[in-house]
Amino acid sequence: MSVDEVGGVLGEIRDEFLAVGERERLQLLLELSRELPELPERYAASPALLERVEECQSPVRAFAEVEADGVHFYATAPQEAPTTRGFASILAQGLTGLTPEQVLAVPDDYPMMLGLARAVSPLRLGGMAGMLGRAKRQVREQLAEGA
């Protein structure tokens, strides 16, 4: 399944990245880093409820929660790690509101679809892939618990 078939925001974000030159893509990622939504109080008060993303060099924590109105993806990343924060923001904006099935259908190589391979280190792209992989696993686990 393609990103376009999954959900609008992820496709829109991908299109924004591909519409600009490589140099501007990094700037766009930095802009998105400033748009990472704040954590709900229950997670802000107890960050241990969020899972540590080991693939990230920076201390990143994330959690995908299946609710009646769809999936909600929450993440925290330090201000001094804007690239990682940008990736977390993309996923928070792009996954939130999707159905569990749509989240599970997001291509695993979505981070590579943003055209950042020459602007960002493979390690950082791996961090975003790690966030996405965790979100999918967490959604699968919650679906299994509810079955």
Rank of each mutant, 00 (worst) to 15 (best):
residue 73 F to R: 00
residue 27 Q to S: 14
residue 54 E to W: 10
residue 8 G to L: 14
residue 80 E to Y: 15
residue 67 E to P: 10
residue 36 L to M: 09
residue 129 A to Y: 01
residue 27 Q to K: 13
residue 132 L to C: 07
residue 118 R to A: 04
residue 146 G to L: 13
residue 119 A to D: 05
residue 54 E to Y: 12
residue 114 L to N: 04
residue 70 G to Y: 02
residue 34 R to H: 10
residue 10 L to A: 05
residue 129 A to L: 06
residue 61 R to F: 02
residue 55 E to I: 06
residue 85 R to H: 15
residue 40 P to N: 13
residue 64 A to I: 05
residue 113 M to T: 10
residue 73 F to N: 06
residue 137 R to L: 09
residue 40 P to H: 13
residue 76 T to N: 12
residue 95 L to Y: 13
residue 21 G to I: 05
residue 83 T to K: 05
residue 66 V to D: 02
residue 146 G to E: 14
residue 145 E to Q: 15
residue 30 L to H: 11
residue 50 L to E: 01
residue 14 R to N: 13
residue 113 M to W: 00
residue 5 E to A: 15
residue 88 A to C: 14
residue 120 V to D: 00
residue 108 D to F: 11
residue 7 G to H: 01
residue 62 A to Y: 05
residue 39 L to S: 05
residue 73 F to M: 06
residue 89 S to C: 03
residue 139 V to H: 00
residue 131 M to L: 09
residue 120 V to I: 15
residue 48 A to C: 03
residue 82 P to V: 03
residue 94 G to V: 02
residue 17 F to C: 00
residue 130 G to N: 10
residue 34 R to S: 09
residue 31 E to D: 15
residue 64 A to Y: 08
residue 32 L to R: 11
residue 85 R to S: 05
residue 70 G to F: 06
residue 43 Y to N: 04
residue 46 S to Y: 12
residue 4 D to Q: 14
residue 4 D to V: 15
residue 9 V to W: 01
residue 43 Y to G: 14
residue 65 E to T: 09
residue 102 Q to V: 12
residue 110 Y to K: 03
residue 95 L to G: 01
residue 2 S to E: 13
residue 27 Q to H: 13
residue 114 L to W: 03
residue 62 A to W: 01
residue 92 A to M: 03
residue 28 L to N: 04
residue 23 R to F: 05
residue 19 A to F: 00
residue 137 R to N: 06
